[in-house]
Write a protein that binds this DNA or RNA. Sequence first.
DNA 1: GCATAATGATACGGGTCCGTAACGATCGGG
DNA 2: CCCGATCGTTACGGACCCGTATCATTATGC
Lengths: 117, 117
Amino acid sequence: MPLEIRPSQALRLWRQVHLDLVRDGQADLSARQTAILLTIYLELPPHTVRGLAAQLGVTKPVITRALDTMGKLGLVSRRRDEFDRRNVIIQRTVAGALAVEKLADLVTERARELGGS
Amino acid sequence: MPLEIRPSQALRLWRQVHLDLVRDGQADLSARQTAILLTIYLELPPHTVRGLAAQLGVTKPVITRALDTMGKLGLVSRRRDEFDRRNVIIQRTVAGALAVEKLADLVTERARELGGS
DNA sequence: GCATAATGATACGGGTCCGTAACGATCGGG
DNA sequence: CCCGATCGTTACGGACCCGTATCATTATGC
């Protein structure tokens, strides 16, 4: 069940959603942070720093810093893995789930409004 | 001709495209920069700093700095308005048009691959 | 001509992020 | 038990961005 969308529609959707994100005064997440956040909330746990770094193709400090920032925003939290105490398990939060859900609704709504150009 | 998409599809599309952007080592544009870039390339010229600031609901220095950065990346360029020399006209570039087109193809392709979940 | 308004750029102090390199903590094999 | 491997974090110097305030330049109205 592929989703049919033309390039011009894709661009207008992309622009409109980003405009909404900026105007709503949301956290101005970079592409990296967005990718990390959505990976945590869409892929099956457990998530580790190393695993996220591998999936995104970036270094570990990038993940650590992104988690620091998003942790301050309340979007994710961290916990030590008790079975292998070297690992850190990244956990979802209520606020994070809410933000992700809001993004989903935003994209869905803007797609619906998309005319046939 | 509305575009039907479910929230879970929207999220998977959003994640996958951001993952591609990060992995391709593209410029890690923030939501603001993306909104500015697409506004320049989708809306009718002429574009000014003041006009962009008003559309995004941000202050003028935000636009100036974003244009500085994207100018270095070759995505946009600036030119004085000869009829009112206070104004600066923001112009598109070949590299910028190419990047926008690439983004459009990326979104379109990832939407096509989207399964029916 | 001169005061006022408007435009975009710049200065400032503070914060975040980058990539590389090193670090402490922890696990595992011999 | 200890040495190497692995984990996530931190240190470093540099770059970018933020919001606010101010600036120089240019246009406009009287």
